[in-house]
Amino acid sequence: MTERATDLDPGLAEAGAVLAAEAARFASLGWMRGTSGNLSMVTSRDPLRLAVTASGMDKGELTESDVVLVDAAGNAVSGGRPSAEAALHARVARLTGADAVVHVHTIASVAVAERCPEGVVLRGLEMLKGIGRPTHAEEVILPVIANSQDMTVLGDRLEAAHDPRVPAVVVAGHGLYVWGADPRQARHHTEVVEWMLELELARR
């Protein structure tokens, strides 16, 4: 019988509580419908370990126990069954140095990706400051990558498209991956990127 993650590590329970609260917020916005989406936060860098929300659970009803500790390959170290996308979370953490990753399924991200398969041009928006750009006048491209059920393939696509100025990527037909220095910053980045995607959708 698999032990609950929080029975093994009180620190993981603390991470689980943070992720449960963040998931409830995203679920309330309709960005994690059903059991979709997943969140993670880094608990150790050497070796790399991430707390990831457990697979197949309603993200609006998570508790501190509904979290899995995974390694740099996305394999469970303790707890239950992680999302298949845990490996991509770990890849993002390694690639970007981020300590928190958000994956949500928003209508705007999927719709805009269909219209902008080469990437979403963002310019002239004050909200660009919300993802760390110094001025509204700057222009960046939010990458759009093709989906894959193979997390190695998807991770390779994300790495090839990654722009260090943009803490996010859209996976076509799937949703949005966003990251930050901690869960709060990752949440803010997610809200800002989604706002810009909704604006782009409204314009079209």
Rank of each mutant, 00 (worst) to 15 (best):
A160W: 04
R133Y: 07
V144H: 05
S44Y: 00
R115C: 09
T96W: 08
L88W: 01
S78F: 04
K59M: 05
D71Y: 04
I107W: 11
V68M: 04
S55G: 04
A113N: 08
G124Q: 06
Q149I: 06
E118P: 03
A113E: 08
L39K: 05
E85D: 15
S148C: 09
V102D: 01
I131A: 05
V110T: 15
D150T: 10
L39H: 02
A86K: 09
V102R: 01
E126D: 14
T96N: 11
G124V: 01
V120C: 06
V104D: 10
A100K: 02
A93P: 10
G124F: 00
D71H: 05
G60T: 03
E159C: 07
T43C: 10
L158W: 11
A90E: 04
A111L: 15
G97D: 00
V121I: 12
E126K: 06
H136G: 13
V153C: 05
S40Y: 00
V144G: 03
A113S: 14
H89F: 10
T96Y: 09
G124R: 03
A73T: 09
A113Q: 08
R123K: 13
L154I: 05
V153H: 05
G155P: 01
R81C: 09
A98P: 03
S55D: 06
S65K: 07
V121G: 09
N38C: 04
V102M: 05
P82R: 14
G132T: 14
P82Q: 15
Q149Y: 10
L95V: 00
A72W: 03
E118V: 02
L88K: 02
H105F: 09
D150W: 13
I141G: 07
R91I: 05
H162G: 07
A111F: 07
A161S: 10
A87M: 05
E139W: 08
M151Y: 11
E114G: 12
A113W: 04
M151T: 14
V102Y: 01
H103S: 08
H89W: 09
E61I: 00
H103R: 07
R115E: 13
T96E: 11
S40I: 01
D150G: 11
R45V: 09
D150R: 11
A137P: 04
V110N: 12
V144M: 06
G97T: 00
G79N: 11
D156R: 13
A146E: 15
T63N: 11
R91C: 12
V42H: 02
G80D: 14
I107A: 13
H105S: 08
S148K: 09
G80V: 13
H162Y: 15
D46G: 08
G60I: 01
R123L: 07
S65V: 00
G124W: 03
V67M: 02
I141C: 14
I107T: 15
G119V: 01
L154Q: 03
E61D: 06
L122K: 01
H89Q: 12
A73M: 07
T63Y: 10
P82N: 15
S78C: 15
G97I: 00
L142Y: 13
G130Y: 02
S148Q: 10
R49T: 02
A137V: 13
N38E: 06
H103M: 10
S109W: 10
T152G: 13
L154V: 04
